[in-house]
């Protein structure tokens, strides 16, 4: 069976502490619940969650949706945003986990990547080095989300072909955003039969598409 692997890279640096991290947890678990009742997602979706602050943690390894359990995401009170380091771990994970088609192995659908941040990389050099490597992984789509006024979407644009901006990382905005993410995943499930990138649904009003 072909899997649709979806990777979430979530910023848990100090600035996310408090309400934003609460909102992120709620929005993510809401999204997972929505996906559980989607026919296609329930059969083929595999999810991986990686958080990054000073440390990079794979808090939920790539797991099929029916068995997936979202671990609570916590963040330190302060500290840097090591986005580059997170991409490094992501690169290894995708290389090892996503199945490439061959005469004896069923290839996965092209994986999707969602990267969520409320700041900018504290390790810009590593971040820049990792971009071409990540792009070589043949993602079906890379979606960047910059939340709040301090988030730098120009950095995200170097990596992601679609970047959205959220004015705040509050509960209702994040809920809207992750609703859109789940629509995008469902879209990814449907875009079978081409080598093109996944076409994304139109984002809700709370989510501004950065062009």
């Amino acid at each position: 069976m072909r899997r649709l692997p979806v990777y979430f890279l979530l910023d848990t640096s100090g600035s996310m502490n408090g309400e934003p991290i609460q909102a992120l947890n709620n929005a993510l678990s809401g999204m997972i619940n929505t996906l559980r009742s989607d026919a296609q997602a329930s059969e083929s979706l595999w999810i991986s969650v990686i958080t990054f602050d000073r440390e990079v943690n794979e808090i939920s390894p790539l797991t099929e949706l029916p068995s997936f359990q979202l671990a609570e995401i916590v963040c330190p009170r302060s500290g840097p945003t090591n986005t580059g380091k997170a991409l490094e771990l992501l690169f290894d994970k995708v290389k090892n986990e996503v199945k490439i088609g061959s005469p004896t192995q069923k290839g996965d659908w092209r994986p999707l990547l969602f990267i969520f941040t409320d700041g900018k990389p504290s390790d810009p050099q590593l971040y820049s080095e990792m971009i071409p490597k990540i792009k070589s992984l043949n993602f079906g789509s890379i979606v960047g989300c910059a939340a709040g006024s301090l988030a730098d979407h120009s950095k995200l644009q170097e990596l992601a072909e679609t970047v959205v901006h959220l004015d705040t990382a509050d509960s209702s905005t994040l809920k809207q955003f992750f609703k859109w993410v789940s629509d995008t995943i469902e879209q990814g499930n449907k875009s079978m039969g081409t080598v093109d990138t996944v076409s994304l649904p139109a984002p809700p009003s709370e989510v501004h598409l950065v062009i």
């Binding site: 072909r2 490439i100 088609g101 005469p103 069923k106 290839g107 996965d108 659908w109 092209r110 043949n138 079906g140 875009s191 079978m192 039969g193 081409t194 080598v195």
Partner: peptide
């Protein structure tokens, strides 16, 4: 014609 990824036909 089987691609590396699903759909690569």
């Amino acid at each position: 014609d089987v691609g590396e990824f699903g759909g690569g036909t």
